[in-house]
């Protein structure tokens, strides 16, 4: 069963998605990375990546295709990585331009966050971006992320230096924004 949002569904990546994902990666506006990547990714590369995901119960990451619930159209890709069990993970998202400003990205992130906080019991979720990506910073702030770290002039993007940013949201901050959800995890800190 996929992760269900209000307007999007996050489901497993399928072979039929690969060309869409390649187009997303090779589009300089939607690459979704803080370094420039050459727009030369091929079907072979993506097929290899898709095939080489091993089955294991010890998962450090998750990767989902974002689908429009109403039309079934592919919207983007979202995932988490660098999982420290019950502690932290880093999220990333890339959305096709047609769906920019539609609310799909925010719904996808909120859907994934619910899985990370309520499903995986994480204490903090992070995302990496840079000071030149105002769209990403603005969207993340609307969801409740705050800039935790600003490494000065550490990113070079399209001819300019930007600050590397890490934005984060703690478990308490997430549940404060979602009073409809119950936090069933006790505090991990010991009050002496």
């Amino acid at each position: 069963m996929a992760l269900e949002g209000k307007i999007v569904r996050l489901r497993e990546e399928r072979e039929a998605d690969l060309q869409f994902l390649i187009d997303l990666r090779n589009d300089m506006d939607t690459q979704g990375w803080s370094q420039r990547l050459p727009p030369d990714y091929t079907l072979d590369m993506y097929e290899k990546r898709h095939r080489e995901r091993d089955f294991t119960m010890e998962r450090k990451d998750g990767r989902f295709t974002i689908v429009d619930k109403e039309s079934g159209e592919l919207i983007g890709t979202i995932g988490y990585a660098e999982l420290e069990p019950r502690l932290s993970a880093t999220v990333g998202i890339a959305i096709t331009k047609k769906y920019w400003g539609s609310g799909a990205a925010m719904d996808a992130i909120e859907t994934l966050l619910q899985f990370l906080y309520q499903g995986l019991g994480l204490q903090v979720v992070r995302l990496w971006t840079h000071s030149g990506n105002e769209r990403a910073v603005g969207s993340a702030e609307k969801i409740g992320f705050k800039v935790a770290l600003r490494q000065r002039e550490g990113i070079f993007y399209d001819g300019r230096l930007y600050d590397n940013l890490v934005m984060d949201m703690t478990r308490e901050e997430y549940f404060e924004r979602h009073p409809d959800l119950e936090d069933g995890l006790p505090s991990m800190e010991i009050d002496r």
Partner: peptide, 24 residues
């Protein structure tokens, strides 16, 4: 100092953060 990676881990019963400092 350019920020803190909050809840980097637990130590002695409390969360700690990783302070990041940079030098250009």
């Amino acid at each position: 100092e350019c920020g803190v990676m909050r809840r980097a881990g637990l130590r002695d019963g409390a969360f700690y953060g990783e302070v990041v400092m940079d030098l250009l």
